[in-house]
Nucleic acid binder design. Structure first.
Lengths: 194, 194
DNA sequence: CACCCAAACGGACCACGGTCCGCTTCTATT
DNA sequence: AATAGAAGCGGACCGTGGTCCGTTTGGGTG
């Protein structure tokens, strides 16, 4: 007899499903770093993973979804180093130093994973993890610094210039060197923190 | 005898080409506002404009390019009202008021044309007109306000939270009402201007 | 162990963006 | 007006993302 779930649990995953998810993710990661995001088709990933194309789409919804999942692995590592890594990015340094280190790190990370982020598109942004974590962390640091006001919005405002769309405009179009972007961001932060 | 062009002129447009460009743009605009950006295919536009598909792509490079061109028409109108419209958006109001009005207007415009902007993608951003104009205008107002520092970067930083990617996250995901976004932006600007 | 059915699978199929190339049309020149 | 050749045209064609549905498989039940 089956027990009725009281709250709707997220539906347990069947064994083969889990195995396939792993295989797909592994194949995708391998292909992406071997031939570059742009040259990885869904068919290729499916073949490489030894599954049908339908399976890819059931698991990850879309190409964007798959790329977002791939991106998520490195994103998770990064989050770990923010939460528990060495200062000044990790805990142990004064809030202001941490905030600046955070911005620089985020800026460079975004630039590094540019093509993946782009390929992940909206799926990447809307993944609860990515944006939400950064915002929460900045909010925390701002509070620590005694800033008052609408912290969620202030955090977003500070984070916005680090978004890939903005960075790309500046780096590619206007040929601004990364160091200047960092300096500019520091300036922004100091003005906002006051 | 043909006179050699001293500087490379942008190559004059043949009459039929110009006619077709008009027809395509008109058809695209009509289709976009009648059935929505998402339901407009390149084939449809071609048919509606009475030209071949190849012609579309020769003129506008890609779907993004076409959408960017469509977007550009309203963008141009908007720019006109910033340059020569009634205050506080247009000239005649104190710089701070103008700056705030500018932000609000930009915010609402971006939200209004959300789907088009998205469809225009990178082509929309990189169009020299759009981003470059806004940045230049903000720079001008900041200078007017006696702000010093790296004005191009400061302007970008102020503009960044008004980018569609950021706005959508806040409006759709976090259900933040537009009024609060405006207030938040005002706060940001005041902190930056000091 | 045999049975069942919901969940998962997979690959044929479709729609759309984008390219290619042989043909047509414009316009400069005499 | 005739001509030539460049610029433009168009639609058959291709690759890829995404869907659909008949078939297979996992794992709970008696």
């Amino acid at each position: 007899m089956k027990l009725l779930p009281l709250a709707d649990e997220p539906a347990p995953e069947r064994a083969d499903a889990a195995r396939n998810r792993e295989a797909i993710l592994a194949a995708a990661l391998r292909l992406v770093e071997s031939r570059g995001v742009g040259c990885v088709t869904m068919d290729t990933v499916a073949t490489e993973a030894g599954v049908g194309k339908g399976t890819l789409f059931r698991r990850f919804d879309s190409r964007e979804g798959l790329m977002a999942a791939v991106l998520n692995t490195s994103e998770t590592q990064w989050q770990a180093s923010v939460i528990g890594g060495p200062p000044p990015l990790g805990p142990g340094a004064p809030a202001m130093e941490r905030l600046l280190a955070f911005g620089h790190s985020r800026l460079r990370t975004n630039l590094t994973h540019a093509s993946l982020i782009e390929a992940a598109g909206r799926a990447g942004q809307r993944s609860v993890a990515a944006m939400s974590f950064a915002n929460m962390h900045v909010r925390y640091l701002l509070r620590e610094l005694g800033v008052d006001g609408d912290l969620p919005l202030l955090a977003t405002a500070i984070l916005a210039p680090l978004e890939l769309v903005v960075l790309e405009q500046q780096v590619e179009r206007e040929r601004i060197p990364v160091e200047r972007l960092e300096a500019g961001w520091d300036d922004l932060v100091r003005r906002v923190v006051g």
